[in-house]
């Protein structure tokens, strides 16, 4: 298998080579959005800060993505990789051949995408959202985890000024509920 660039290397290319050229174009029900490499990299940086500062995501953290395909989902995935985390997709996801970009195809039941670090460190975070990524906490802590591919575990809840989340201690899930209000702008 040929060597492939890490997500970090991809982001570096995107912000240095034709940085203002379109890299990601989204056609949604609310219209069209075009992101250049520089803008996408900026969104990844913002998302990385959110993951690291608010969710205590560190190298080896596993984030289960139960998100629809959306440009914000891609930004979150790259942010996860940028912080050293692992993107965990639900089983049953389509299984293309191993592809570039630091993506590892682990097995038929679980797909792990990572840019490094240990994907099974014991640190685990669950992240899920409704159709659009929105950042404001609303309501009580949901059952954790919501996804069928992980087993329920105990969790602790901690609130911050911008969101509520559950601390990431080994063997426990960290949860953030991303719900209505405070939609991210472009």
């Amino acid at each position: 298998m040929r060597s492939v660039p890490t997500p970090d290397a991809l982001l570096t290319r995107m912000r240095t080579i034709d940085a203002s050229s379109p890299r990601l174009i989204w056609h949604g029900s609310e219209g069209r959005i075009e992101l250049s490499g520089r803008v996408f990299d900026n969104w990844v940086a913002k998302s990385s800060n959110l993951l690291a500062d608010e969710l205590d995501v560190v190298e080896g953290s596993v984030l289960a993505f139960d998100l629809p395909v959306h440009w914000k989902t891609l930004a979150l995935a790259f942010a996860c990789w940028q912080t050293g985390g692992v993107v965990l997709l639900p089983p049953g996801a389509p299984a293309p051949a191993p592809a570039p970009g630091g993506i590892l195809w682990q097995d038929a039941a679980a797909v792990v995408l990572c840019s490094g670090g240990c994907p099974r460190s014991g640190r685990r975070a669950c992240w899920w959202a409704w159709p659009w990524a929105r950042w404001r906490w609303a309501g009580t802590a949901p059952r954790c985890p919501p996804a069928p591919w992980t087993s329920p575990r105990r969790y602790e809840r901690r609130e911050t000024s911008t969101s509520a989340h559950l601390s990431t201690t080994p063997g426990r899930h960290s949860c953030v509920r991303v719900t209505a209000d405070s939609r991210m702008g472009t």
């Binding site: 290319r13 395909v69 989902t73 995935a77 996801a93 389509p94």
Partner: peptide, 16 residues
């Protein structure tokens, strides 16, 4: 699927 989207994005962005 999201996996294919991510794989494709990485593949395309590697080549501008």
């Amino acid at each position: 699927g999201l996996l294919e989207v991510l794989a494709t994005a990485c593949s395309m962005w590697e080549r501008e």
